[in-house]
């Protein structure tokens, strides 16, 4: 569990316990006790202030890279994960196209979300996209089970967006775009691919 918390923080950047818990699929109290242990080991630190939160130290990043690579190699999952990563990268530009279409109309004007038919059409394409994303998520979690959490979170974001919480498309930390970007970061970190 300590690697899960450490690595979640590695992928999402600075965050509070509630957000880490949501991303990792743990309770806040589980996360909190892990964070205390990790802080004692000097792997995470807590910054105060408006933009503060828990984050990795330099030592924490090194430790995460070692442990997450160790887990990958001991499960002999690198070939399968690499293959699924390439599938992810095929989908990646399409997801960014979709987020852009959600934010900007084709005439270059920002989407003010007053045109329900247009938003419905874009969400329809998100649904279609998601069906294919779920297939890639299944390949990812077949390689390493922890990746299934992304399928859960992406599905949840889209369900909320469809129910009218439009910020779950591309705004804010729980949005489809944010979860997708965290998945991207996770894959790069796990496979040791530099940005």
């Amino acid at each position: 569990m300590s690697l899960l918390v450490l690595h979640t923080l590695r992928c999402i950047g600075f965050a509070g316990t509630a957000r880490i818990a949501g991303a990792a699929g743990l309770t806040e109290s589980e996360v909190e006790s892990e964070l205390i242990d990790l802080a004692v080991d000097g792997l995470v630190t807590h910054l105060p202030g408006e933009f503060g939160g828990w984050g990795l130290t330099d030592e924490g990043r090194v430790a995460d890279a070692q442990r997450i690579t160790g887990e990958l190699e001991s499960a002999q999952a690198r070939p399968a994960l690499t293959k699924a990563f390439h599938e992810f990268m095929v989908l990646n530009p399409e997801l960014l196209d979709l987020c852009t279409a959600w934010q900007i109309r084709s005439n270059g004007i920002l989407n003010d979300h007053s045109d329900i038919a247009y938003d419905g059409r874009v969400l329809g394409r998100f649904n279609d996209f998601h069906e294919r994303a779920v297939v890639v998520c299944a390949d990812l979690s077949a390689a390493q089970a922890r990746f299934d959490r992304y399928r859960v979170r992406l599905t949840d974001a889209l369900r909320r967006a469809a129910a009218g919480e439009l910020e779950y498309v591309a705004d804010g930390i729980g949005s489809y775009h944010a979860v997708w970007a965290e998945l991207h970061e996770d894959l790069l970190a796990t496979l040791g691919i530099p940005r």
Binding site: C11, I12, G13, F14, F51, I173, A178, A181, H184, E185
Partner: peptide
């Protein structure tokens, strides 16, 4: 990347 979210927020 997601690491820059708080930088973007600030």
């Amino acid at each position: 990347s997601p690491h820059d979210m708080r930088g973007l927020a600030a």
